[in-house]
Simulated scan of single mutants.
Amino acid sequence: MLTYEHLTDVRLDGPTVVTIGNFDGVHKGHQFVLEKTIAAAAARDAQSAVVTFDPHPALVHRPECAPPLLTGRRDRLELIETAGIDVALVIPYTLEFAQLTARDFVERYFVRGLNACAVVIGRDVRFGKDNAGDLDALEVLGREFGFEVIVVDDFGAPDGGERWSSSVVRQLVFSGEMLAVTTLLGRPHRVRGEVVHGDARGRELGFPTANMSQSSDGMVPADGVYAGWLSVVDGDRSEQHMPAAISVGTNPTFDGEERRVESFVIDRKGLELYGKEVIVEFVQRLRPTVKFDSLDALIDQMNLDVDKARLILG
């Protein structure tokens, strides 16, 4: 996938079919829109393109109440690329950019920048200064500039329940309901970051853990112990999708205060992960965080957690 941040860098061989959004999480609803964009591009002998933003607009307009992001920029773009999109334009979102009128935005980015022959959007689309642009406005601009507007109707859950949305996924991650999250995403939820030194308590207890940096990307789920996977980014095949028991929380048995994500890789010894970038995927919550009265009780429970995680992960 060709990825651009500045219109002056964009190099295209022909027209594009464009869709626009934040795509946080790239959940099944997003995937549906991306599939429609790719299909529309193929039918028009065009390239498929995504226009997205970094940072998330809410972090610019309302940083004090912006929701936690499900995915960092790198994972978001990787997932969009995996879906099959040809071109991504990542617009640096600023207060100055937010002053562009709907017409100026469409002309600058869709028409001049990406040579759009069609734009794929949902019925509730909003764009331009003060979110003044809507579906009707886009259709008027499409007639003016010569591009087609393709409307994707709301894509709800298969059981007829709530529509796919990033906010629904966030609520499930916040509650630790990872099986439901996997259903909405089509894959386990992930956190990406560097392995840093911790307190080395896990090693002392016989369960050495990979402690993720506080600056890791991706929304951290509810406190508890999870079965999941750990992969070393750019590692060899033996370091991909390693089964893990993952602890999220403050280590209340040791009166900890810092909330951490720590992964014990099951049935692997001698791993050297400090300083490496890893991806941790959460498959299923095993139990909530508990404060134990003794180290023996903690170790017994950790052995049970590992056995259960091993069984779940096969």
Score class of each variant (00 low, 15 high):
Val290Glu: 09
Arg190Thr: 15
Gln284Glu: 12
Ala40Ile: 06
Ile80Gln: 09
Glu262Thr: 10
Phe254Met: 11
Pro221Leu: 09
Glu257Cys: 07
Ala41Cys: 06
Met178Asn: 06
Arg11Lys: 08
Gly218Gln: 00
Gly224Phe: 12
Glu144His: 11
Ala83Arg: 06
Phe53Ile: 02
Glu277Met: 15
Asp86Thr: 05
Tyr93Gly: 02
Asp296Gln: 11
His6Cys: 09
Thr19Arg: 11
Tyr4Ile: 11
Pro68Ile: 01
Val18Pro: 11
Pro221Asp: 02
Val90Cys: 10
Val151His: 08
Thr253Pro: 06
Ile246Glu: 00
Ala39Glu: 13
Arg126Glu: 11
Phe174Gln: 15
Asp104Gly: 05
Leu138Thr: 14
Val169Gly: 07
Ser166Thr: 13
Leu59Thr: 13
Thr3Val: 15
Ile38Pro: 01
Ala49Arg: 09
Glu204Thr: 15
Ser213His: 03
Gly128Asn: 06
Asp54Pro: 00
Arg268Tyr: 13
Arg44Gly: 07
Arg44Phe: 08
Pro288Tyr: 05
Glu81Asp: 14
Ile85Gly: 07
Met212Thr: 04
Gly206Asp: 00
Glu272Pro: 00
Val232Ala: 09
Ser175Leu: 12
Ala43Asp: 05
Ala102Phe: 01
Gln99Ala: 11
Pro57Gly: 14
Leu69His: 02
Ser247His: 13
Arg103Met: 11
Ala157Arg: 07
Pro55Gln: 11
Leu286His: 07
Asp153Leu: 12
Tyr274Gln: 03
Ala227Cys: 06
Gln240Ala: 10
Gly160Phe: 02
Leu273Met: 08
Ser175Phe: 00
Val181Arg: 10
Phe147Arg: 00
Leu77Asp: 09
Ala49Trp: 01
His30Ala: 11
Leu114Cys: 03
Val87Phe: 01
Gln171Trp: 03
Arg203Asp: 15
Gln47Thr: 03
Glu194Ala: 15
Glu239Trp: 01
Gly270Cys: 04
Ser213Lys: 05
Gly161Met: 05
Val18Cys: 11
Val152Ile: 14
Asp236His: 10
Ala137Lys: 15
Ser175Met: 09
Arg143Ala: 14
Val168Phe: 09
Arg237Tyr: 04
Ile299Gln: 08
Val151Tyr: 05
Gln171Cys: 04
Val220Tyr: 12
Ala49Ser: 02
Val87Ala: 04
Leu205Pro: 08
Lys36Leu: 12
Phe254Glu: 02
Phe254Thr: 12
Asp75Tyr: 02
Ala88Phe: 00
Val87His: 03
Asp236Met: 12
Gly249Val: 03
Val306Trp: 00
Phe110Met: 13
Asp75Trp: 01
Phe207Asn: 10
Leu273Arg: 04
Thr101Tyr: 01
Phe53Gly: 03
Val233Asp: 02
Asp24Cys: 07
Arg192Tyr: 11
Glu96Ala: 12
Val90Pro: 07
Asp153Met: 12
Ala137Glu: 08
Glu107Phe: 14
Leu313Ser: 06
Thr19Glu: 04
Lys36Ser: 14
Phe174Ala: 15
Gly275Asn: 09
Ala88Asp: 02
Glu35Leu: 08
Asp45Lys: 14
Ser165Ile: 06
Asp293Met: 05
